[in-house]
Each structure stands twice: as structure tokens, then as C-alpha cells.
């Protein structure tokens, strides 16, 4: 069972209090009624399902109720970071480099 740091509760809590909500940083177009079929397909249906780093949404549904974002490794389940909804997407390269440095230090 995962242990997830809620950026609003400022504490690690059991996965039991959370619900995963799919990929993060997919913005619903402001002019959604006007977008093309291809753009809608991209927005609504297509996902990468990466092996490794993923940016995903979680909701602390049985806690503070907030949606937030996380950068997680889908292989090791390690959370690199979690951050509040609306905050910018962290730099992927920096995250991976930080991990490498930590690995080297170990």
C-alpha cells in the first residue's frame, strides 16, 4: 500500500485515503466546443501509459478532499514529488537527474 504525501495536509498518508484520477496536466480546452475531432481525440482519449516517470492526479478523497498532482515512477512506485493542482509541471530532467545524484550518493 502506497504512502502518499498530500501537499495540502503536509503529511504522508496511507493510499486508503486517496483515489487516483489519471494523467495530470491535461487541460480541457477553453474553446472545447470548437476543437477538431483530432484535437478532441488527443484531449480525451489518448494517453501514454509510460514505463517509468508519470505525472498523475490524485484526490485526497477521504482526507482534505483536494485534487493534486504527483510525479511517480510506475516501475518502482517511488513518488518523486507531489504538488498542488495548478502549480507548474516540474522539470522532468531535473527530477531524473536528482534521482541519479541520490543514487550515486548511495
Amino acid at each position: 500500500m502506497l504512502l502518499i504525501y498530500c501537499p495540502y495536509c503536509e503529511e504522508e498518508r496511507s493510499e486508503l485515503e486517496f483515489r487516483n484520477a489519471g494523467d495530470a496536466h491535461i487541460v480541457r480546452p477553453a474553446n472545447i466546443a470548437e476543437i477538431s475531432d483530432e484535437e478532441f481525440e488527443e484531449f480525451f482519449f489518448l494517453r501514454q501509459n509510460p514505463k517509468g516517470l508519470i505525472f498523475e492526479r490524485w484526490r485526497h478523497i477521504h482526507g482534505c478532499g483536494r485534487f493534486f498532482n504527483a510525479a511517480r515512477d510506475t516501475v518502482s512506485d517511488r513518488f518523486y514529488t507531489t504538488y498542488k493542482a495548478g502549480e507548474p509541471k516540474p522539470d522532468v530532467a531535473a527530477i531524473l537527474k536528482g534521482e541519479q545524484d541520490k543514487g550515486a550518493a548511495r
Binding site: 495536509c9 498518508r13 496511507s14 486508503l16 485515503e17 477521504h62 482526507g63 478532499g65
Partner: peptide, 10 residues
């Protein structure tokens, strides 16, 4: 205080 889980309920 905290909202949380007890068994299967909130």
C-alpha cells in the same frame, strides 16, 4: 483532527 478511513467507511 482529520477526515480519514475506518474499515470501509469515511
Amino acid at each position: 483532527c482529520s477526515r480519514t478511513i475506518l474499515g470501509k467507511v469515511e
